[in-house]
Write a protein that binds this DNA or RNA. Structure first.
Lengths: 250, 250
DNA sequence: CACCTTAGTTGATCTGGATCAGGATTTTGT
DNA sequence: ACAAAATCCTGATCCAGATCAACTAAGGTG
């Protein structure tokens, strides 16, 4: 089967200019930083001023590592990455997968140093806004800070859901929740919610859901046997959204 | 044994004026909202302006409930509470215990509605700053928003640690981590880090750590047998900090 | 004070998912 | 094109912690 990640296919890098213009940023996770109070649309002039440089990264590279100073916030233009925290003896817990269109890097503002790491899962392009630039700009345009608060608060909500999973759901419910979550995020960004390709391994999914890789594999098989999904390696098709929801939203 | 919660004993409500003055707020979780850029001490005038009303709540009462509009942010003057999220079928995951001096309520800014609930664990007094007041004030004093970002970002770090626990640590490591965390938080607020009283039940601790109440009990007994702690009901004494750390920080 | 309710504790048993082991398929590098 | 390395999958066994079931101790109440 040819590798046809839907977000890799649908987002053509060539269609965009060299600078991160307002248009290019519309689906970008930092777009909302350009929103002024009370308005739905971002202010084009403001977006232009936020601007940002681009960065291209390959699979396996790190966007940032533990204890590094926080230098910038990012938005994903295409591609994806995982972020995770580490225990004293090196066990790791993936805290999130980040896909096209999503913002990244606001977590560690308090300390000024990264308490987590972010690693690239597939060829990925990012918008990068240096923190000092954002700092200067937000003195002048205070709404930027409000928007940052909102982004961070969304992050918190994601973490709350993950804690509920890790603390209270069984393995099958976790995988169902995971797949549904991905599905609706793809949909939000204009991709099919029922057919998509995963950029992470079974092992990564397990490390995210707090279950073993083997269990993750068995669950993919089980959900398929039960007719809820069709899955082959990285490609997933949701075949019974209702039953999957029933499982997940318990 | 008489009920001598150290934070109930040490913080005398009578010692403070009727309004939440700058002095009264020094140990208060909202104190840092009064910090101006680059300064360690909060600006007294600013603190006065943030001001806040008080609120007294009894055990079992809710500070806020699911789906309620977010009306204010809070700081705990004395007492404690738990906050938790709920699954579709009513299972609950406690996401944090909040003790004297800590801020509360910044989580749900994005949606404007609470996605979690907060319930009082013992007689508790709070500082309350209405959101619209904070909003107005922060137009004029932008540093307030920066401080809010920092508070929220700390919250995120707490969640990251909790996820690591829930996803990767065994039950004994979880309890050790929990006790050490409480210990250092008490210390931060000027109480003994080695002897303190819990305001939450074994069941609550289990619901926080993602383990059963019975397991929590057994672990208290085990840590006591092994000489790491002494515990009787709600009172806890840490007897071997090093070994407890060894367990927790793995 | 006697009664009742709630919280804490301990034991016995069961089980979901971890771990260990091996094989199949796909991707990557040369 | 081929070898090597990931990645994925399945089976067998094991065990940490859940669940079920009493029992005890502490507070609270009339």
């Amino acid at each position: 089967m040819p590798r046809l990640l839907n977000h890799t296919v649908s987002v053509e890098p060539t269609a965009e200019a060299a600078a991160c213009t307002a248009v290019a940023c519309r689906n970008c996770g930092l777009y909302q930083l350009g929103r002024l109070p009370g308005r739905e649309e971002a202010d084009p002039t403001l977006l232009q001023r936020i601007a940002c440089s681009r960065r291209q990264l390959r699979k396996g590279e790190y966007l940032y590592r533990l204890d590094e100073p926080v230098r910038a916030v990012y938005a994903i233009r295409y591609g994806s990455l995982k972020s995770y925290v580490l225990s004293g003896d090196g066990r790791l817990q993936i805290t999130g997968f980040h896909i096209v269109g999503e913002p990244l890097g606001l977590n560690d503002l308090a300390t000024g140093r990264h308490t987590s790491e972010a690693q690239i899962l597939e060829p990925t392009s990012l918008c990068e806004v240096p923190l000092d630039h954002l700092e200067k700009l937000s003195v002048e345009v205070p709404s930027i800070r409000s928007q940052m608060l909102i982004i961070l608060s969304r992050e918190v909500q994601h973490y709350q859901e993950l804690m509920l999973m890790l603390g209270k759901k069984n393995a099958e419910e976790r995988l169902a929740t995971f797949l549904l979550g991905l599905s609706s995020r793809f949909e939000q960004h204009g991709f099919s919610p029922l057919r998509f390709n995963l950029s992470m391994s079974r092992g990564d999914i397990g490390t995210y859901l707090g279950i073993a890789e083997e269990t993750t594999c068995r669950l993919f098989s089980r959900l398929q046997e039960e007719g809820l999904i069709r899955a082959h390696r990285r490609s997933v098709e949701i075949r019974d959204l209702d039953r999957l929801r029933q499982l997940a939203l318990r």
